[in-house]
Design a protein around this nucleic acid. Sequence first.
DNA 1: TATATTACTTATCAAATGATAACATAAAGG
DNA 2: CCTTTATGTTATCATTTGATAAGTAATATA
Lengths: 144, 144
Amino acid sequence: MDKNKFFQVVINFIGNVHSSTHFLKKDARSNKITPQQHSILEYVFFSKEVTTSQVADCLNISLPNASRELKKLFKLDLIIKESNEKDRRKTTISLSKPGQNLMLRTFERIQKNFWKQADELSEDEMRSIISSMKVLEKKVFIPY
Amino acid sequence: MDKNKFFQVVINFIGNVHSSTHFLKKDARSNKITPQQHSILEYVFFSKEVTTSQVADCLNISLPNASRELKKLFKLDLIIKESNEKDRRKTTISLSKPGQNLMLRTFERIQKNFWKQADELSEDEMRSIISSMKVLEKKVFIPY
DNA sequence: TATATTACTTATCAAATGATAACATAAAGG
DNA sequence: CCTTTATGTTATCATTTGATAAGTAATATA
């Protein structure tokens, strides 16, 4: 198979994922926080406990800027900051109760959009979709 | 199958696509244009000919801001603006020769990153990946 | 123990993006 | 023809995000 052709298909697929995602997330953002802050909360939500540096690295934000945004989220009472027991230079970030609620609410909205778009999927179709994703995650979009 | 579970898998997959994409695009951007301008050029590149409104709609930019960014790209000689013959309110946007070259160069860089990450794929694997993408594009990430 | 290095913070400035009002002009519809 | 609607532009301001220098405190290391 022509590698260029294959690459084109992948790029095209990525484009479709991005635009679909945009549609899904539409109207799902709180008006209190910025998009970047929302991605930080998402990241913390899925990772449970992280340090400031990890947030910075994984979301490609410089450490000072990550620190700034985390401070804002802290002042909004959406995250908890604890000094790490074993290495007190480190700060452990986790979602506060309000932060968790915010994430759950926005995911509910995303989920509604999702089912509006992808309803009437049969059992078989869901299974086939999941196995497709597994293939892609194994070979192309490898989880960090 | 539990719909919540299915939703989780999809969200997780989307996350992986986004972070992989970030990696792929790393270092692939021109230093002359902003990320948003780059996505505009990408969009025009794949769509061949579009109007200002289409750029605004598809990239979720307000019309005035789309107009502003297109003006900058025009001044950089990266796009061509032509008044539409049939409806002279409309402007047809397309890539200039330098614009096309810029896109081709950045795609080459993205492609290099891609193969660095996803090399040694067999014929069978590529075919299986493509068919997985087709499934997802049919059912979940439906092209606009 | 002196000296690096790591993790983070604060402050400041610049650049990119978003939002909105006011305007111009072309086309559509009564 | 007159009014309304659609397409786009310009200008201005606010917000968000990026970049960088300087500083603090804890840990690692020579």
